[in-house]
Lab assay of single mutants.
Amino acid sequence: QKPIVRVFLPNKQRTVVPARCGVTVRDSLKKALMMRGLIPECCAVYRIQDGEKKPIGWDTDISWLTGEELHVEVLE
């Protein structure tokens, strides 16, 4: 079983991306966001920890988040 990260996107959409070492959250999600007309710069990404949303940086190595759920939200 490959290491993955589940990602909840705006508009009730979601995707799953591989959690590859040395790849940033930005690079992992860029294609999924672009297909939906979004760019990382207009969004914020969060991980859910103890039921709370914790913001994470787009430059975080995605392999550190293996098995986690991330939420991407459009910044107002």
Rank of each mutant, 00 (worst) to 15 (best):
Ile4Val: 05
Arg20Phe: 12
Val74Met: 07
Ala44Gln: 01
Arg36Gln: 08
Gln49Trp: 08
Asp50Trp: 05
Gln49Ile: 10
Val7Ala: 06
Glu52Cys: 08
Glu69Ser: 08
Arg47Cys: 06
Arg20Met: 12
Val23Gly: 05
Leu38Asn: 10
Glu41Arg: 09
Phe8Gly: 04
Val5Tyr: 00
Arg20Gly: 07
Glu76Ser: 12
Met34Gly: 11
Lys30Trp: 03
Val25Lys: 00
Leu38Thr: 06
Lys12Met: 12
Ile62Lys: 00
Phe8Ile: 08
Glu76Lys: 06
Gly57Leu: 12
Glu69Thr: 13
Ile48Trp: 12
Thr60Ala: 11
Asp61Thr: 05
Arg36Asp: 12
Lys12Arg: 15
Cys42Asn: 14
Arg26Tyr: 08
Glu68Lys: 13
Leu65Thr: 06
Asp50Gly: 07
Asp59Gly: 07
Lys2Met: 07
Leu9Asn: 00
Leu9Phe: 10
Pro10Gly: 02
Leu65Arg: 11
Glu73Val: 06
Thr66Phe: 05
His71Gly: 08
Pro40Ser: 14
Glu52Tyr: 08
Glu69Ile: 11
Cys43Gly: 01
Asp59His: 05
Ala32Cys: 12
Glu73Cys: 07
Val17Gly: 00
Arg6Gly: 02
Ser28Asp: 00
Arg47His: 06
Glu73Leu: 04
Pro55Thr: 11
Arg36Val: 04
Leu70Asn: 01
Ile48Asp: 11
Thr66Glu: 13
Tyr46Gln: 12
Ala44Met: 14
Pro10Val: 01
Val7Met: 02
Pro40Ile: 15
Gly51Ala: 10
Leu9Met: 08
Arg20Gln: 12
Gln49His: 06
Arg47Asp: 06
Ser28Ala: 06
Val45Asn: 01
Thr66Val: 10
Val23Tyr: 08
Thr66Lys: 12
Asn11Ser: 06
Phe8Val: 05
Glu52Pro: 08
Arg20His: 10
Arg14Glu: 09
Ile39Asn: 14
Val45Tyr: 07
Glu52His: 15
Arg47Pro: 01
Met34Lys: 15
Gln1Arg: 07
Leu33Ile: 14
Cys21Ile: 13
Leu29Pro: 00
Leu70Lys: 01
Asp61Pro: 10
Val45Ala: 14
Val23Gln: 08
Asp61Ile: 03
Phe8Pro: 00
Val74His: 12
Val25His: 01
Gly67Thr: 05
Cys42Gln: 15
Arg6Cys: 04
Trp58Glu: 04
Val74Gln: 15
Phe8Asp: 03
Pro10Ile: 01
Val25Gly: 00
Glu41Gly: 10
Gly37Ala: 13
Arg26Trp: 14
Asp50Arg: 09
Asp50Ile: 12
Arg20Cys: 08
Leu9Glu: 00
Tyr46Ser: 13
Ile56Glu: 09
Ser63Lys: 10
Gly22Ala: 05
Pro3His: 15
Cys43Ser: 10
Lys31Pro: 05
Ala19Glu: 01
His71Gln: 13
Cys21His: 08
Glu73Phe: 06
Ser63Val: 05
Val72Ser: 01
Glu68Arg: 10
Cys43Leu: 12
Tyr46Pro: 00
Cys42Arg: 15
Ala44Ser: 10
Glu41Gln: 10
Gln49Pro: 04
Gly37Pro: 01
Ile56Gly: 01
Ser63Asp: 04
Gln49Asp: 11
Gly22Trp: 02
Leu29Phe: 03
Arg6Leu: 03
Pro10Leu: 01
Arg6Val: 03
Pro3Ala: 13
Val7Lys: 00
Trp64His: 14
Arg26Pro: 00
Phe8Tyr: 13
Trp58Thr: 02
Gln49Asn: 12
Leu33His: 02
Met34Ile: 14
Leu9Cys: 01
Gln1Phe: 15
Pro10Trp: 01
Leu38Tyr: 11
Gln49Leu: 11
Thr24Leu: 04
Cys21Ser: 14
Val5Asn: 01
Tyr46Ile: 13
Ser28Gly: 09
Gly37Ile: 02
Val16Asn: 06
Phe8Met: 14
Val17Leu: 06
Ile56Val: 14
Leu9Asp: 00
Gly37Val: 02
Pro55Tyr: 15
Leu9Gly: 01
Glu73Asp: 12
Asp59Lys: 06
Thr15Trp: 03
Lys31Ser: 06
Cys21Pro: 09
Leu75Arg: 13
Met35Glu: 14
Lys54Asp: 09
Val7Arg: 00
Thr24Glu: 03
Trp64Phe: 12
Gly51Tyr: 05
Thr66His: 09
Asp27Gln: 09
Glu76Ile: 02
Val74Phe: 10
Arg20Val: 08
Glu52Val: 08
Ala19Ser: 09
Lys30Gly: 05
Cys42Ser: 14
Met35Thr: 13
Lys31Ile: 02
Arg6Asn: 05
Val45Met: 11
Val74Ser: 13
Pro55Glu: 13
Thr60Phe: 13
Thr66Gln: 10
Arg14Tyr: 12
